[in-house]
Nucleic acid binder design. Structure first.
Lengths: 261, 261
DNA sequence: GAGTGGATTTCGCAT
DNA sequence: ATGCGAAGTCCACTC
């Protein structure tokens, strides 16, 4: 029951049919999907045991392996791709698939005793994936459009190394005061405030000027406002999605300028 | 092309065939797999865009959604299960599938223009999943690799019977002080601290040397730190999974070496 | 319901 | 190699 160039679909197959198909798929770096009743053992960084049930097994062209149950966003067992070695064989009318990798040393063993479908094919996929509005994106957005922070802000450097770690953005406000900016892309907790506090302390010991510390985040956790005030820090609300808008527009603009010249 | 009770398999189907199958699968909380050429947009906590290519779409019975590329352990786009609303419809010989959830507000839109396979079925799965790293494993791990407790620790005995019960591990630190170790695999409460306190008292009455008591656990409950200090005890954070790592590494390594050849 | 911490986290990037 | 931090993190547990 097959079709197309690389596509192979087996419905209610015998175990040895799947054995052949799986070996062929893995050796040719195809994508392999098996749906059936199985149980799974994992040994490595921890140990786990999954009792029999119907699941979806996916083995991708890079050797990554996923076992998915009928519910849940996450795989119940998995193996990240890379240097993974597979072993497929029939044993007493059961199909045993074992995936082993060295670094870190771990093993996933899947045994099927009933298979509903087995599908293998080459996935042709060169489409680009782009994600906007990471923490780095927010930083870039502020560098491109400093008014996002406040009017008159002028960035000097970014990711400047100071004693406890890195300052996200570092600049001057309209009155010439130093400004240290710490960026979080989601609700800022105590951790972020203390981090900024440590930055500020480190900078104060070196520069003998007035320093403002600004925490940039879409929102702040419940009791954190108090901590901010206590440490003499400020808070500027900024949604990562706003930053994404700036980035995409500015990118388009720069592209236009480039082609305009 | 179908079989079994709930299993439906379509190979190289027309778009409207898949539309019907997908609507049927989603409305009946079946598991749905579509393999084909698609592009994906995500709007929500961030924005992402995936250009056209062949991928695997999985929609599970709980509404969780996964888009997998030909490589990588992680999905390129996804939606965790729960209160997810799906919308499936054909538009100009393309199949548009949209998943929306409110908390947090986000949307994944997938458009297929060519479909290789569409599979839907009910996955019957009641098998239990257990992740194993018991208190005994943690103890053995510390015996195998005493540095897990602290550098220079040398175990002498384990599960040694003392007055109130058993000491988990008993040894000397780098300075020759006696060390009594109590292990909990879950968050340690006051109970564990008092238990260790009783052990310490029992040992102190026999040995006339300085004794350190260390509570080993992945975490400690809220007010327990205070109790520890009061009783002059220490706390060492240690995750049972880290211990499982130590335990299984050699066995897994040997296996990896075998299959590597 | 929000905050906090862990994960077989994975995946970068910097040292 | 190692270590640190981010993630559309997710998830479970505490408060």
């Amino acid at each position: 029951m097959s079709s197309s160039k690389s596509l192979t679909v087996l419905v209610d197959p015998r175990i040895n049919e799947v054995e052949d198909a799986a070996k062929e798929a893995i050796s040719h770096s195809k994508t392999l999907l098996i749906i059936g009743r199985c149980w799974v053992d994992y040994h490595g960084r921890a140990k786990s045991k999954l009792e029999p049930g119907e699941r979806i097994l996916i083995i991708k062209s890079d050797g990554s392996l996923l076992v998915h149950r009928s519910v849940g966003y996450e795989p119940v067992n998995w193996m990240p791709g890379g240097n993974v070695i597979f072993n497929v064989q029939e044993r007493g009318n059961r199909l045993e698939i074992r995936a082993v990798r060295q670094k870190p040393p771990e093993t996933v063993t899947i045994i099927f005793d009933k298979i509903q479908t087995c599908t293998s094919l080459v996935l042709s996929d060169s489409g680009e994936f782009s994600l906007y509005a990471s923490e780095e994106d927010m930083q870039r957005a502020i560098l491109i459009k400093p008014d996002l922070l406040e009017e008159g802000f002028r960035p000097i450097t970014y990711e400047k190394k100071v004693e406890p770690g890195f300052v996200d953005v570092y600049g001057e406000d309209r009155n010439g005061k130093f400004v240290v900016v710490e960026i979080k892309r989601k609700t800022a907790g105590k951790e972020a405030v203390f981090q900024l506090g440590r930055y500020i302390d480190a900078v104060r010991t070196k520069a003998n000027r007035e320093i403002r510390g600004i925490l940039v985040a879409p929102s702040i956790a419940k009791g954190v406002q108090r901590t901010l005030v206590t440490l003499g820090l400020e808070y500027k609300q900024l949604d990562p999605r706003k930053c994404a808008d700036v980035l995409t527009r500015s990118a388009t603009k720069r592209l236009a300028e480039f082609f305009g010249q």
